[in-house]
Design a protein around this nucleic acid. Structure first.
Length: 259
DNA sequence: ATGGTCGGCCTCCGA
């Protein structure tokens, strides 16, 4: 069995104690991190390495930044999403570990609607779709995990009507997300919990956490070869309630080991 | 009574 988790930590330095506590209790084999908000050289490597994790870090100063931590070696690393050479933002890391092709992705937020930011989000989603075609053609187990900044359906947000003009839920955003999933990927959480209302993100503002005004925007999308091995998927709400919490909480899945 | 989101970085931007 291999346990793969994803967590937008909103600064690895500000969140280090929370992340290490969670690593020690949840013991994921692979942790996909987003919004580390630091350059590779300033990432707290030692704390992960002493716990037996290898690292692939794609850093950026102050903004964005993703990483993969794994108890197995990380083979054939890819540190940029193909398709737009001028894109300097650190939003994508991919490698093979435990025989699974895993990606840690931080999809652009896209707000405000109708400007450069939203155009960039849609272009990024088109690039992800194009890349997913190639990954699926390889017929290997693939787990594309991360902060998608996409609310897939009304049951994934506390107030769907209030979010219709937001880049996380706009019709065009949901269509672009479905166009990726419909290539043949499975949303691990929704596949195993079809009727469960569950969120992965609660804004810091307006008492969103205490009112459970959340969004489900962190996802694990699985290729058929991974989905056939899917045995569990859970959102761990506990870290969101801790002191100095990230606004996102971890979601993880387990894949059966191949016989 | 007070203040009311947070992180990074430099006084504001991004989320």
């Amino acid at each position: 069995m291999v346990k793969i988790a994803t967590w937008n930590v909103n600064s690895i330095k500000a969140r280090l104690a929370n992340v290490l506590d969670w690593l020690d209790s949840a013991e994921p084999d692979v942790l996909l991190l987003q919004e580390i908000k630091t350059l590779e050289n300033n990432f707290p490597r030692l704390e992960f390495e002493t716990r037996g994790y290898n690292l692939l870090i794609v850093g950026q100063k102050a903004y964005n930044g993703v990483a993969i931590a794994s108890r197995d070696k990380l083979h054939k690393p890819l540190t940029r999403l193909p398709g737009e050479r001028a894109d300097e933002q650190a939003r994508y890391a991919e490698a093979t570990t435990f025989g699974v092709r895993v990606a840690s992705l931080y999809l652009p937020n896209g707000n405000p609607m109708g400007g450069d930011k939203y155009d960039y989000k849609l272009r990024w989603m088109a690039r992800l779709r194009r890349h997913a075609i190639d990954l699926l053609a390889s017929e290997q187990p693939v787990v594309l995990g991360g902060d998608y900044n996409v609310i897939p359906a009304p049951e994934d947000v506390y107030d769907p009507a209030g979010w219709e003009n937001d880049a996380l839920y706009a019709l065009e955003t949901r269509r672009a997300f479905r166009a990726i999933v419909h290539l043949g990927l499975s949303d691990a959480f929704r596949a195993l919990h079809p009727d469960e209302r569950a969120y992965t993100y609660w804004d810091y503002q307006g008492m969103a956490w205490s009112n459970d005004h959340g969004l489900r925007i962190d996802h694990l999308l699985l290729s058929p070869q991974a989905a056939d091995r899917l045995e569990s998927c859970h959102i761990d709400r506990a870290p969101r309630g801790c002191d100095k919490a990230s606004d996102h909480t971890p979601i993880w899945c387990t894949l059966e080991t191949t016989p």
